[in-house]
Amino acid sequence: MLEFLQQMINGLSIGSIYALIALGYTMVYGIIKLINFAHGDMYMIGAYVGMISVTTFKLPFVLALPATMIVTGVLGVVIERIAYRPLRKSTRVAALITAIGVSFFLQNAVSRIMGAKIYTFPPVLDNRTFMFYGLRFNTQQIAIFVTAILLMILLQVIVKKTKVGRAMRSVAVDQDAAKLMGVNVDRTISLTFAIGSSLAAAAGILVGIYYNTINPLMGFAPGLKAFVAAVFGGIGIIPGAMIGGFAIGLIETMVSGYGSTLYKDAVVYVILILVLIIKPSGLLGKNRKEKV
């Protein structure tokens, strides 16, 4: 039982990372129906920006996190301007392929600028372990979990309670109608990319600190997993992404813990296929009007 609970803790800490990345995926999809495959690479960029802000600029974690989110958010807006906006009226396949192109561009640009080698993070977050009824907790695991939950709540508040959020929801329902009602569609979409990218960046810096290793290709696999998480929870639905992220993290850990690590990716993708067959709209994908 103790082993099972310990594996739960392990799973939730990976799950919070998937959840953070999945939030951005789901938001962008909810608004402009684009599967942004470059999202995993924004997470990688976030890890690099975070690493530079704590090593070169010597920022403490509480400043490095928002700084990283802002820088990466701005980059997300720039990418949307250059790569996605000109294609907004074209087919979804064209936009999807462009997203894959952006993904490769980001990976290779970072390889070129920073080198293909691995960077390590300096210890910026307290890393203590304490026992609680025989269970082992790590301060960094808790920091990641809490940050993920806080950011999700913040996102939910922005989308549901603010004017910007209302604009986002209206664009999600019908872009043309929103425009007629005086919503600045371009600005709203830019903002969506800014928020989505900054969430990925938050995940990137947290992962960089927790695993202590970053490289230009680190975004690919977690990006795919987060996509699975978003689909699992119901793509376009914010709490769904969160639940999906935690679910994928837990499933992976349990497969590793009670089966073999070698099967964990296979199991995750089998689940994706099953979800797509049985409930294509995802776990929470009932109320289509709520999509954001």
Binding site: E3, Q6, Q7, N10, G11, S13, I14, V207, Y211, T213, M218, A221, E252, T253, M254, S256, G257, Y258, S260, T261, L262, D265
Partner: peptide, 17 residues
């Protein structure tokens, strides 16, 4: 004996095991 793939960065599950 436990094995993993080269893309893994989180080994907590197998270490707990």
């Amino acid at each position: 004996e436990e094995y993993y793939t080269d893309t893994d960065t989180d080994f907590n599950a197998i270490l707990t095991k």
